[in-house]
C-alpha cells in the first residue's frame, strides 16, 4: 500500500491550502509534495480571495479551515462553488470545529469532504486522491 504518491506524475496537481494555523501548512506540505502536488498556502480569507482571483481559480483542489480572519471557510466555499467554472473546484474542509451543525452547513454549501482536526495524514492523502480522480 503506497500512500504518499500522487495520481499521475506527469501532471502536477495545484492545491490551495487556506489555514491560519502555523503547524498545519507544514504538515500538509510534507504530505502533498512535488512532483505530484504543488501546494500554495495562504493564511486568511482575504489572501485566499486575492490568490484565487490572481490565478483565475486555477486549482485542482482547495483545502480550507473554517475559523479564519477576514473571511471564514464557509464564505470561501460559497465563493468557490458559485464561481463560473465548468466544474467547480473540489473543496475539503479541515477544521477543529467539527460539530454536527458545522458539518451539515459545509455540505449544504457544497463541500466535497470534511475532516476534523487532528487529522490522520494518510487519510488526508487518500481523500485528496479520491477527489482528484473524480475531477
Amino acid at each position: 500500500m503506497v500512500l504518499f504518491t500522487g495520481l499521475n506524475s506527469a501532471t502536477m496537481n495545484k492545491i490551495l491550502l487556506i489555514e491560519d494555523d502555523e503547524i498545519m501548512p507544514k504538515v500538509v506540505a510534507r504530505i502533498l509534495q512535488p512532483p505530484d502536488y504543488q501546494l500554495d498556502h495562504v493564511s486568511n480569507g482575504k489572501e485566499a480571495f486575492e490568490k484565487l482571483e490572481a490565478t483565475g481559480y486555477d486549482y485542482a483542489l482547495i483545502i480550507t479551515d473554517i475559523m479564519m480572519p477576514y473571511a471564514n471557510g464557509f464564505e470561501i466555499l460559497s465563493k468557490v462553488k458559485s464561481h463560473d467554472r465548468e466544474k467547480p473546484i473540489p473543496v475539503i474542509i479541515v477544521s477543529n470545529a467539527g460539530n454536527e451543525d458545522m458539518i451539515m452547513e459545509a455540505f449544504k454549501l457544497g463541500a466535497d469532504d470534511f475532516l476534523k482536526k487532528p487529522i490522520i495524514p494518510a487519510e488526508l492523502i487518500i481523500r485528496v486522491k479520491r477527489l482528484l480522480m473524480n475531477k
Binding site: D21, I23, M24, V27, K117, P118, I119, I120, P121, A122
Partner: peptide
C-alpha cells in the same frame, strides 16, 4: 502539543 492538535493516528 501543537503538532498533536493537528495530527493523530500513528504520527500522533
Amino acid at each position: 502539543i501543537h503538532f498533536r492538535r493537528n495530527v493523530r493516528g500513528n504520527p500522533g
